[in-house]
Computed example of a mutant assay.
Amino acid sequence: MRLDKFLKVSRLIKRRTLAKEVCDQNRVEINERPAKASSNVKIGDKLAIRFGQKIVVVQVEEIKENPRKEEAASLYRVIGEVPVPRDEKEEEAYIRGN
């Protein structure tokens, strides 16, 4: 499934166009690599999403094309949430879990 569509159906981001814009601004990574909106997401991938002053790291648990509202949260598991680091080394260390 495309990254922008996954962000929308999982309700991590409200609209697909907004998800695309966030990806275009290099604010989303898949498995520690910058991701485009068209990147493919699969079960087990680790997503790091920068929301303003925090980074949310989630792991993809399930992929569904059209989940109901109640099922949306089951598509991912939140690994952690951290304030935006001061430099790239801090960010990489957090995403890797060190």
Score class of each variant (00 low, 15 high):
L3R: 08
L3Y: 06
D4W: 05
D4C: 08
D4K: 03
K5H: 14
K5L: 12
K5P: 01
K8W: 15
S10Y: 04
R11A: 05
L12E: 05
L12R: 01
K14C: 07
K14N: 09
T17Y: 07
A19K: 00
A19R: 00
A19E: 08
A19S: 12
K20N: 10
K20Q: 15
E21K: 15
E21V: 14
C23H: 02
E29R: 15
I30K: 06
I30E: 01
E32V: 07
R33T: 15
N40L: 14
N40P: 00
G44M: 06
L47N: 05
L47Y: 06
I49V: 10
F51I: 03
G52T: 03
Q53K: 11
K54C: 06
V56W: 00
V57M: 10
Q59H: 11
Q59L: 09
V60A: 11
E61Q: 10
E61T: 03
E61I: 05
E62R: 01
I63Y: 00
I63W: 00
N66D: 09
P67Y: 13
K69V: 13
E70N: 03
E71G: 04
A73L: 11
A73M: 09
L75A: 10
Y76Q: 08
R77E: 07
I79F: 03
G80I: 01
P83M: 08
P85C: 09
R86H: 11
K89L: 14
K89S: 12
E90N: 06
E91R: 13
R96W: 10
G97Y: 05
N98W: 07
N98F: 07
N98H: 06
